[in-house]
Every structure is written in C-alpha cells, then in structure tokens.
Design a protein around this nucleic acid. Structure first.
Lengths: 241, 241
DNA sequence: CGGTTGTTTGACGCAGTTCAAGCGGAGTGG
DNA sequence: CCACTCCGCTTGAACTGCGTCAAACAACCG
C-alpha cells in the first residue's frame, strides 16, 4: 500500500521541498493490516509512535459512563491518526478502526529528529494539526447551534468533500462505511433520530445512502441545509464552489 | 502589565531554557488596552500578527445566521489568543474581548524567525495549541452527550481550574465576568435555560455566582455532575485531585 | 432618573429521547 | 440448504428537556 496518500493529504494545505517530502516519507514504517472495530490507541495510554491511516476508515472517540460515547472525528486515508501522542504524550481519547484498515507507524523519536532538521516540515505537520483543530471548532458550532437535519447534512458534506480531496470520490459518490449509530454518536443525537433524519434527506432527494455508499444528488441544497462552507478545511485550492 | 503571565501559562505544559524564554518574551510587543465587547480579530481576516491576552477576558466565536453564535473558548490572562492566524493564515472564527483587557501583539515573521532558531520553543508553542485542541474535544463531548446541568457544571469547573493555574484564584473564588448569555452561547443552550440551570446549581449549594464572582462551594459534587476530569488540560503537575 | 443591559419567572410547544417491537441481510453451523 | 443468530435499519407511541415568547424586575451608568 503506498504511503504517498499521506503526503498528498499533507500537501492539501502546505508546501514541501523534495528533500522534506523524502524525509517525511522515511518516517513511515512498514504498513500493517488491522481488522474492523479494533481499538488501536487507548485513552490514557502514552504510545511511543503515531499512526497514519493508509487505507480504510477509523475514528477518534471519548467514552462516557453507560454505553455513551462521543465520536470526535472520522479518519480517512491519508490522515495522521494521532500526532496527539507525539505532542501531548498521554492520549485524552481513543482511536479505533471502523472498517478493515491499513496503518503504519511513525516513531516519535524519529519524528523529533526529522522535525529539528526541517523546520518547514514541522510547520506543515503543525498546520495539519491546526486544520484538525479547525474541524473540531466547526463540529462544535454545528452541534451546539444547528438542528439534527443540518448536523447530518453538514457531516455528509464534510465527509464527501474530504474524501474527494484525497481522490476517493467517483463522480458524486463516495464509499462511506458509517453505521447510523456512528453518525448518531458523532452528532450527539440518538440512533432513532439519525435514522429519521437520513430518511428526511432521502425523501428530499438530496442524497442516497445505502450499502455504505453515499451519493450526493443535490450538493447545493445539502450544503445550504448543513450550513457547509468548506473554508474551515483550509485547503489551498478551492475547487467546488 | 507584565508579560510573564504568558510564560507562566506556557510552562504549565512544557519546559524552556532561559535562552528560549527570553527569545519568546522578545516576541511580545508593547501591550495596549482594549475596551470590553470589542472584536479584535475578524473571521476571514488574515492578520500579520497574533495576540496574547495579558489581562482581562476574551472569547473566540463563530457567528451564524440570525443572532446565533457559538462561543468556542474563553481566553484568560496568559492565553495566546490566536496562533491560528500564524499557522492557518485566514481566520475561521472571530475573537472579541468580554471585559476591558490588556493585549499585546506577536508579529508573524518574528515568530517564524525565532521558531526556526529554537525548535524546542516551537514544540512548546505547538503543544499549547494542541492543549487547546484537547479542550475543543472535551467541549464537543460535553455538548454532544451531557444534559444542561452537566454542561454548566463542567464549564464552571474548567474556568475555575484554569484561572487557578495562572494564579487568578483566591481560595475557592475566582472572578468570572461572563453573562448568562455568554454561558448559553458557549454550551449550546438558551439563555433562559442557562439561568434556570445556574439556579439549580445554586440551590444544590454547589456554587455561588453573583456580581461576576464564582465561588465553588462543593468542588467534588460539582466535578461529579460536570463529569470533569482535569486530565484533558494536560497540565504537568496535577494539583487538585 | 430614564435608559440600557442582564437576570428572573411563567406558560406553552416542539424537537428529539426512550422504550419496544419488527424487519432484513449476512454469516455460521448443523 | 435451511435454521438460527447477530447486527443494523426501520417504525410507532409516549414522554420530556429544553426552546420560544413575553413580561417583569434588578442593577449599573451617564
């Protein structure tokens, strides 16, 4: 599995010289396959390496009492799943796969070495973490202020948009292997309501979502309902409106 | 006004040599006073400098249609109000003062210079931004999963704890100049409900909150209701439980 | 002392929750 | 190849936390 997808993603919001690119790629260890529904990084642990997702789907989440959990973000191919452990040392949340995935490690001490030699590479990785932070702010706003339909619409727009940016869209369809329960846990609504809301969007003929494939039928309307402005993703070239 | 409070805050989760400390302090320009309720950084702008808050209270927020807004975080003395503009260039949210404040600028090109010379300083500032990101994740979880009482309790715990960490607490009291409307906008609830929830906490004899002063009467219970575990703040020395 | 901004209270309505049951597909074992 | 099970999706009905509207009250300030 080629690790260039990580580079591709990184370059969505930063520039690197050839030397820096190679230095970065040299950090990525041999990939391995991980089965679905497997917790890869545990809250409160302090790993010696960070993970990058080369293929598949994963999510960060926090567990609460009972069976409640909040999904904090969905990881798609190219995402660095936890720079957190590199910078913050102790995890304040967990990371698990949603589907079978291919991941690779980046050892912390090697990251530090390379970062000290290439300040600009540091800057680009830092930028990547700041973009993620921007996504948290957007989710906070969506969940704090918008009703369920808008939250779902926003989530679908974001996932489609990000997947497209790393070349995982075919036309107006993407593979989106989330259960309704995942969607509910990400948006702070109940599974039942997630279901009803999805039906609403289907009946409005804005989307199709079956057998893990999302098709956007009316991007403009969907983006409007979800109050989705892609600016917060901080991509350099603004395709799509 | 002395700018050492910023250093103090930074050192809550990182270590710096004397040389690095001085380099950092040299970045901070002459402080100036800003009146209350003043937008200092506008969404979509691209400032040439970042701001640090030396005294007073400020908040980051995103505006939506109507008069709705989501407050993303409260800035207290010592906080770097927007490293965002340094790394991401274009702001995806605004920053405004809540009370009269003292702020100082840090010019972006000077930050870059100093950061290239001191990789460890870069690391510590990066860490600071990651802690902020951790707070966003915590808010996301709180707002997504917990009922209003818990949200309010959590917010009060966090503010008290952070203020105490920079030396702004006297006993179990802190000055907390937030209106109920600020609290509501931060937690995704209505002003009316914020009011009723605060009354509930007062009647339970967990807090006092009047004339901009918060007093914690029963920390343990409050933390329990708010599901507050300070670990997510990533402070190095764990006072308080 | 009037105006403005923040807090408090009451009544009513609704978006979303919870409980509970039924349904369909995919995998497994006899 | 059928029965059984598990998991995810769907549906209905009853309930409730919180929002909205509206008005009164309190505090601060010029």
């Amino acid at each position: 599995m080629d690790s260039h997808i990580v580079l591709r993603k990184l370059l969505l919001h930063g520039d690197l010289s050839t030397e820096e690119k190679n230095a970065f790629l040299s950090l990525i260890e041999t990939p391995r396959t991980v089965e679905a529904q497997r917790v890869m990084v545990e809250e409160e642990s302090a790993p010696q390496h960070s993970l990058v997702l080369l293929d598949g789907f994963a999510c960060r989440f926090k567990s609460l009492t009972g069976d409640r959990r909040q999904i904090l973000s969905f990881q798609i191919p190219g995402d660095i799943s936890d720079v957190h452990s590199y910078i913050l040392k102790v995890m304040d949340h967990s990371v698990m796969t949603l589907t079978q995935s291919i991941v690779a490690e980046m050892k912390h001490d090697r990251i530090r070495e390379v970062c000290e030699r290439f300040p600009n590479l540091t800057h680009v990785i830092w930028r990547d973490t700041m973009v993620e932070s921007a996504i948290f702010r957007e989710w906070l706003t969506t969940i704090g202020q918008l009703p369920a339909v808008s939250r779902v619409a926003h989530l679908l727009c974001e996932q489609y948009f990000r997947l497209k940016a790393v070349g995982r869209a075919s036309g107006n369809s993407v593979s989106l292997p989330l259960t309704q329960s995942d969607i509910a846990d990400a948006l702070g609504i109940s599974v039942v309501h997630a279901n009803r809301t999805l039906q609403e969007l289907r009946q409005m003929r804005l989307i199709e979502l079956r057998s893990r494939t999302l098709t956007i039928l009316d991007w403009e309307q969907l983006a409007k309902i979800g109050v989705f402005r892609q600016r917060y993703l901080h991509y350099r070239d603004h395709h799509h409106s």
